[in-house]
Nucleic acid binder design. Structure first.
Lengths: 212, 212
DNA sequence: GTCTATACGAGGATAGAC
DNA sequence: GTCTATCCTCGTATAGAC
């Protein structure tokens, strides 16, 4: 008796679910290698579908990439809008913003690397213009208010904002690099470590601009 | 009369000079795309020699990559050894270290991106273990001394050090991303801008850990 | 909507002339 | 030590069956 050629069980036919699964896997892969380094093959493998599905749903690799960025940015924007950054006290506003930003990152730690890659590899060709504005503008505004009110030092708000973001995201961008600083076995993405990083980053951010 | 087939004038035969030119071009290329994204072809083009020369002199792409990292790290180490980081006053030591680090970077602004890539793409497989130690150990030591002496806040020295490095290098890692924050035409790598960044980063670094 | 099979281009690496 | 020509693998993308 001829054994029926066992093919892959064609998974449940649910376009939206498949798209989401692909997006999640892609996010992970793009975070590792950027648009250039990501392999559609390995995204497919992670997702559990075939490569063709990626092209079916997203056209081409760049289409998938754009979709990932788009989803990420809209989440960011939504989160910012829920945050109280217009508090009269600029110190509280700054604290709120950074705190929320870091909580978002600890929930999805792939994003810093993705946007980093986007800037360096593609020079922001795809999206980061918007992402940048939505991230930096609030910080710059808060810093200006802080300086005017006399609570913050007389910093250059643009440079200060860039440096603050750097302080917040570097840890997540460099996990595999910096993890060797801690004893072997320490998980830099454990809740404890992420919370510790958040606490330190918030403290240092505020201290870095406050009048002393 | 038959025109002699004009070939490329085989450049001056100077192995060392050629190797250096290749290394310089490679540094630039690796800074843009990391080991994965760099194209031997375009390194060769920048250098003005053919692809084969790369393989002749460095064996393969990874060999070239290692050579670039090696050169960079040895420069870093040499620079650190010339810096007064053992000053009795931890504030001065920290200022010295960061100031020197940033001056080095402004002289070769490719390095942050290269080491960033190395960490994220190759997980430090090639070199950064050493690079990391040579960079972070001094900072951590200074922070410990500062906390013990009561001049610095009671920070977690490892997290604080990571955040400080992030504050210093982020600007250089993200030039093409953040440059849109300034008026069009502003050159983020001009001496004025680099100096401004250095001043702000030093100030913020010190303020971020100092008792207030 | 999902799979298999395959075309095709890009890029790392080698062979061999000069 | 440098160049030209070529090989071969890998990875994006498409065609077509189910």
């Amino acid at each position: 008796m001829v054994p029926s050629p066992k093919k892959h069980a064609p998974a449940i036919r649910d376009a939206e679910a498949t798209k989401t699964r692909i997006l999640d896997a892609a996010e992970e892969e793009f975070a590792k290698g950027g648009l250039l380094g990501a392999r559609t093959e390995s995204i497919a493998a992670k997702t559990g579908v075939t490569k063709s599905m990626i092209f079916y749903h997203f056209g081409d690799k760049e289409g998938l990439y754009s979709a990932v960025l788009e989803r990420a940015v809209s989440q960011r924007v939504a989160s910012i809008q829920k945050t109280d950054i217009h508090n009269i006290d600029p110190e509280i506003a700054l604290k709120n913003f950074v705190e929320t930003f870091l909580r978002d990152l600890s929930g999805n730690s792939h994003l810093p690397a993705i946007f980093f890659y986007e800037g360096i590899q593609n020079k922001g060709r795809f999206y980061s213009q918007i992402a940048i504005t939505s991230l930096y503008t609030p910080i710059v505004d808060i810093l200006r208010r802080g300086t005017e009110s006399g609570k913050f030092r007389d910093v250059d708000p643009l440079h200060a904002a860039v440096n603050i973001v750097g302080m917040c995201v570097f840890y997540y961008c460099n996990i595999d690099n910096v993890k060797h600083l801690w004893p072997a076995g320490t998980n830099p993405l454990s809740e404890e470590m992420k919370e510790m990083h958040r606490r330190m980053a918030v403290e240092q951010t505020v201290a870095s601009v406050l009048i002393r």
